[in-house]
Every structure is written in structure tokens, then in C-alpha cells.
Nucleic acid binder design. Structure first.
Length: 268
DNA sequence: AAGCCTCCCAACCGCCTGGTC
DNA sequence: TGACCAGGCGGTTGGGAGGCT
């Protein structure tokens, strides 16, 4: 036996609120405070259930609600808090003055989540998406494995993503050296001698500059990369809101003294 | 201009939690 | 201790708006 509905739905209005209803609700709360939501509609002269009134007030009519687009800082805060709290929208909203949980939830689902997916970030775990691994497509690009310029390889965003993916896996103690072989998508490719040879042709080089334009990717990547590549420099470009990589400007200025083989990153 | 499609968000639904008796 | 209830929460939906063909 289910619990009784929050109110008697007979004759109660549903759907969008009218300006008149909004005014009635605001007038009542200004005069009497929020009080008991169950009895509020009747006292305020509204044909709505208390729950509907509460939602309308907390999500729309409350005077301290901030309207308009989310700022870059707000968006960053949401992403960071979501990585810590998950879908605890009310907890996230509590740290964003003037924003409601419903608004944040909607914004997450319609904007941030899609953007993270486009960037190859899993919006649930905030880690690079392993399901995007596709080594064969990368290795089939002559510009990647035929070039004599290691930096060009490093600046390839897909290669970097793979590196971060593998480093992520390496960091996880539950994953062992068989990790890649367990991935059905990669097994055939990695056991292919030709592919392996192509892999071996990657040049040894310093890992000078991983420059990510998006601080979120930077944050997710930094942890992984810094553990395996202590000389790796990661720089965010907060002036753009894009996941693309921007060219490293001066690799020699970092004064790096340690060489790291790219294969160390790629072969788990 | 019209029909279709996609996106967005206000609002709803049902479950959970904590307080009260 | 358990039933009941109000409030809170997260997931989902429906319809309006705008873009596309």
C-alpha cells in the first residue's frame, strides 16, 4: 500500500503557473512566511497542492534567486563540486548562492554533461572515457607515427587522451598489466606486430608541455600525468572555453632535465 | 510558409528521510 | 517501535521556442 498523496488532487490545478497565481503565492508568503505548505494553498486562495507551491517558490519566486546565464566561475564550481558530490544537486546548490538545485540539474544535463562528453570526459566519473580508445585510427595517421618531431605527436589531442587514459589505468591498482588486453576493442590491435612496430617508432622525447585549454581537462589530466611524468608541464588556458589543444610556445624554456619515453606512457 | 526536429527548462512524480506521536 | 506525515530530493517529462529543411 503506497503512501497517501501529498494532497487531495481533486480539483487542483497542474501545469504552468499564471502571473496571478505567482502574485497570490508571493503575497501570502511575504505576509505570513512559508509555514505549512500543506495548508498554504488553501489559505492563499490557490487551487494547487502544497508541493507545487513549494517548488514554485523555491525554484522560481524566491527573491534571492539569481537569473540569467551561468558564469564561467559558476560552471567551474559546478563541475568541481559534481566531481566530489555526484548528483547531489541540493548540496551543490547550497554552495552556489542564488542558484537552485533544479536549475543546476537542468544546466548540468543540457550543457555541462554534453560538453564533457564531447571532450572525452565521462560526466559521471570525471575521468577520460576509456570507451573512446581507438588506437588503430590514431596509428593509421601518418602525421602521428611518421613524424620526426616528437612535439607534433604530443600535441595530437587523441594521443594525449590515450596517454591519460592509460596513466589513469596504471594509477588504479586494481588494474594490472593485462589491462589493455582485457579490452576487447584493443586486444586485436595490440597483438598485431605491425601495430606494435608502429608504436615502437614513437620517438623518445621530453614531455615538456601539455597545454590544455580547458581547466577541467587540465584538472582531470594533471593528477594522472604528474604522477608518471614529473617533468610534464600542464597549463590551462582559462581565456577559452574549449577543449582544443593550443600549441606549446617554447619547449626549451622549461629547463627540463629528464627525458621520458613516450612509450613509458603508452605501454602499460 | 509549413512541417519537422532538437533543445531547453519549468514542473511533476515518486521515493527517501527525519520528526512527531 | 512503528505508523504517519511534511518536506526534500533526484529523475523524468511535456510543451514551448527556435532552428533546419
Amino acid at each position: 500500500m503506497g503512501r497517501a498523496p501529498c494532497c487531495d488532487k481533486n480539483g487542483l490545478k497542474k501545469g504552468p503557473w499564471t502571473a496571478e497565481e505567482d502574485q497570490k503565492l508571493m503575497d501570502y508568503i511575504q505576509r505570513h512566511g512559508q509555514g505549512n505548505w500543506r495548508t498554504l494553498p488553501k489559505n492563499a486562495g490557490l487551487s494547487r497542492c502544497g508541493k507545487s507551491c513549494r517548488l514554485r517558490w523555491t525554484n522560481y519566486l524566491r527573491p534571492d534567486i539569481k537569473r540569467g546565464r551561468f558564469s564561467f566561475e559558476e560552471e567551474e564550481t559546478i563541475i568541481q563540486l559534481h566531481s566530489l558530490l555526484g548528483n547531489k544537486w541540493s548540496a551543490i546548490a547550497a554552495r552556489l548562492p542564488g542558484r537552485t538545485d533544479n536549475e543546476i540539474k537542468n544546466y548540468w544535463n543540457t550543457h555541462i554533461r554534453k560538453r564533457l562528453l564531447r571532450m572525452g570526459i565521462d560526466p559521471v566519473t570525471h575521468s577520460p572515457r576509456l570507451d573512446l580508445l581507438d588506437l588503430s585510427s590514431i596509428l593509421s595517421r601518418p602525421t602521428i607515427y611518421n613524424t620526426s618531431h616528437a612535439i607534433e605527436s604530443l600535441m595530437n589531442s587523441e594521443l594525449l587522451r590515450i596517454a591519460t587514459n592509460l596513466l589513469s589505468a596504471r594509477r588504479d591498482n586494481s588494474l594490472n598489466s593485462n589491462y589493455l588486453m582485457q579490452d576487447s576493442l584493443q586486444e586485436e590491435e595490440l597483438s598485431n606486430p605491425q601495430i606494435q612496430t608502429q608504436f615502437q617508432s614513437f620517438p623518445t622525447t621530453q614531455q615538456e608541455a601539455l597545454i590544455l585549454s580547458d581547466p577541467n581537462i587540465m584538472q582531470a589530466t594533471e593528477t594522472y600525468m604528474s604522477q608518471a611524468l614529473p617533468t610534464c608541464q600542464i597549463q590551462s588556458n582559462v581565456n577559452t572555453n574549449d577543449a582544443s589543444f593550443v600549441p606549446a610556445q617554447n619547449f626549451t624554456n622549461y629547463g627540463l632535465d629528464q627525458s621520458v619515453n613516450l612509450m613509458d606512457c603508452l605501454v602499460v
